[in-house]
Design a protein around this nucleic acid. Sequence first.
DNA 1: TATCTTACTGACCAGTCAGTCAGTAATGGA
DNA 2: TCCATTACTGACTGACTGGTCAGTAAGATA
Lengths: 221, 221
Amino acid sequence: MPGTSKPARRFRRRPEARPEELLDAALTVFGERGYRATTLEEVARAAGVSKGTVYLYFASKDDLFRAMVEKNVIGMLEMAEARAREHTGTSADLLETMIRAMWRALSQAEMVCMTRLVQSELPQFPEIQRYYWENVIQRHRRLLRTIVERGIASGEFRPEALAIVPTMVPSLMLHLNHVRALFGGLDPDAPTLEAQVESILSLVFDGIRNRPIAASKQKKG
Amino acid sequence: MPGTSKPARRFRRRPEARPEELLDAALTVFGERGYRATTLEEVARAAGVSKGTVYLYFASKDDLFRAMVEKNVIGMLEMAEARAREHTGTSADLLETMIRAMWRALSQAEMVCMTRLVQSELPQFPEIQRYYWENVIQRHRRLLRTIVERGIASGEFRPEALAIVPTMVPSLMLHLNHVRALFGGLDPDAPTLEAQVESILSLVFDGIRNRPIAASKQKKG
DNA sequence: TATCTTACTGACCAGTCAGTCAGTAATGGA
DNA sequence: TCCATTACTGACTGACTGGTCAGTAAGATA
């Protein structure tokens, strides 16, 4: 009779899959509870293992956090850079494409977690901060700068764009996204994601000033 | 001989000053360490009292945090509203004035702490979150909306400004400020505060698109 | 000076959690 | 089927901290 004598496998040995699973779990749990408030017990449970296992793959809670940030940040930038390299068309078109792509990426649940974490926990981690500055922010700004420089050279953009786009466009989008994640539930007339990206493009390209008609046909936002 | 028998007053009784001092200390310490990472011992020491004293004036760590947020947020909005009421001139002038004033206010050290805290800790405090949404964000947006509506009516602003200014201008400024606080030290060519506000105004009013001068040439798409 | 009130202190308690490690069980090889 | 290897478990520990409270001393009153 098999009733009492079920050995019932308690776990599976899958050393190759564990690190990945732990990093994913870490993103979820850190993302919704913050670094300090998360216990490794929770992360372990979310990854389907016990706490001890975490320490087989990561030296400490810090180390886990650091690895998680690095993992989730590389891909996006590389995609963006590839897109820029392959693009044929006006700089304005390229910039618009990049803004739309970034907006789409930011609205993903994991990216919401990620940006929240980076904004709130980075001050506590000077090392990660430095890494982030050099390998994410500077790199992203460089990418935007080359696009803008091309656009200025071709006469599409004003020279002021150089001081505007690389710093301000990312800030604008990150914070709008942050506010949406934080207060979206409380705001019954929050604009849709689609409406909001159109407004962003409208602001970035044309600003708010009303202009005398000037008979020129501008692209509409 | 007075050598051994110095009683040396250990503390002073100043019940009226304590709450204020504790709130200031709380802002400083919470601001640089985050909510979870700060101990009440630290806050107490920063205020020059012992831990027990904190509990004479605030019911809990939560309560202290909540009181600190409320204290530091009311003043600014009221000032901004007063400025708007008293203004005589174009809407564009008023908006520019408001942007400059907000930028100046944000760059104060206490405000840097405050905005960092709000952005990172609010998700953990649903009650404060709701309070903040209703009494800070909505109120601020309403103020900006009335300015923009006036500007659209007078023909100064495009109608799109209504979907742009109330949400995007604050987001832009808050996040730029956040980035400056976080990475300013690492960035040797960070623009000055003055240069940056000019860029903000340039973006908000005119965008980045190069425009053909008046009615002469029209090309571009 | 003696007495009273109460602002303030700091040792203490109970709960929490990062990190450890002795032991257990999954798996591959003989 | 037994053995060797090692991925994995989970009870445990030591350090820490939010919150308490019995006691201390500042200052007021007379």
